[in-house]
Amino acid sequence: MKAIILAAGYATRLYPLTKNKAKPLLELSGKPILDHIMEKLERVSVIDQVFIVTNEKFAKSFSEWSQLYQGNKIATVINDHTTSNDNRLGAIADIQYVIKKQKIEEDIMVLAGDNLFDFNLKDFVDFYQDMKSDCITVHELNDFNELQKTGVVEVDRNFLVTSFEEKPEKPKSNLAGPPFYIYQSETLPLIAQYLDQGNNPDAPGHFIPWLIGHKAVYAYKFEGLRYDIGTIESYRKAQKLF
């Protein structure tokens, strides 16, 4: 299995903090957010390589980070060659860019480079291997305003995903779907198909409602906290928590 960390955004909502520094490289508890994510990935034995997809503006910074990284996983930086928020590819297009450029044919785990979480990724992989199908993650979120800012998921009693809506005005459940996914190798061509049909290439959650129309997707429900570093306020809150 390969892992892809999405880090090609420009984080304009975090200016001036991210004017000259990529959001995943902001520090929490004395080390970059990216290090916290990599520590989780280090514990997943089936993942043999991690791709960090970024942009022209921050590629050098991520390359410098990778040269100093002390973990056991191979961390490869991929530059999508976009230069601003106006010409960015979008997260789903970035996933496809890495798949095509690296000729990936294995299963992939996709994670956002600005989300921190309590749960063990190995448990997520175990669930995926039991289900033998594409999987997303969900957790309970009972703040209506926060649900309007994330993906909201409906599942049946077997945790088969029956609906997924990105940033809904009227959330249909209290299950939030953060950007952590595992896709089977056979699903990878569907990402290209989704994009070729002119669908939204941006937030990674937009792919899920399209995907559940083509094949079964299951939701792994995790306990514990998840931190989405989207604004200066949320970053300051995470700093205090850590």
Rank of each mutant, 00 (worst) to 15 (best):
N79I: 03
I108A: 04
F159I: 00
T83E: 13
N72I: 06
Q96P: 02
Q102V: 07
L41C: 07
T12C: 01
A238F: 08
V44H: 00
T150F: 04
L225G: 05
A238N: 06
H206A: 10
L68N: 11
N199R: 13
L147I: 01
K240V: 14
H81A: 11
V110E: 07
L147T: 05
P209V: 11
I108M: 05
Y235T: 04
D107F: 06
G30F: 01
F127I: 03
V77N: 09
L25R: 10
K101S: 15
T76C: 09
E106A: 11
E223H: 11
Y10E: 09
K101I: 02
P201C: 10
N174H: 12
I136L: 13
L26P: 06
A216E: 15
R157G: 00
K221E: 13
D130H: 08
H36T: 08
K31D: 02
I74M: 10
V138F: 10
F144I: 14
A8I: 00
P204S: 14
M131P: 00
N85T: 09
I182S: 04
K101W: 05
A8Y: 01
I208D: 00
I136S: 08
T12S: 12
S234D: 14
G9L: 01
Q239H: 10
F58W: 07
S63N: 12
L26V: 04
A7D: 03
V44A: 07
S66C: 01
N20W: 00
V153I: 15
V125S: 03
L195E: 06
E56A: 11
P178F: 14
L116K: 08
E186P: 00
Q184C: 07
S234H: 10
G205Q: 13
G9A: 08
H214L: 11
W210G: 10
Q148A: 05
A59E: 12
Q102N: 06
L188H: 07
Q197T: 00
N174A: 05
K73C: 08
K240E: 15
V53R: 03
L26Q: 09
E27I: 02
D143F: 02
A216R: 15
F222G: 06
Q129C: 00
D123P: 04
G213L: 09
T150Q: 09
Y194D: 07
K103G: 01
Q70E: 13
Q239D: 04
G9C: 05
Q102R: 12
D48V: 03
Q197K: 14
G213I: 05
N72Q: 13
G198Y: 04
N55A: 06
N174Y: 09
E27A: 02
L225T: 05
T187P: 03
D134W: 07
H36P: 11
Q129H: 08
I99K: 05
E140A: 08
E154M: 13
E64P: 00
I191D: 07
G90S: 13
N174G: 00
S84Y: 12
K2I: 07
T83W: 01
R43C: 09
N87G: 02
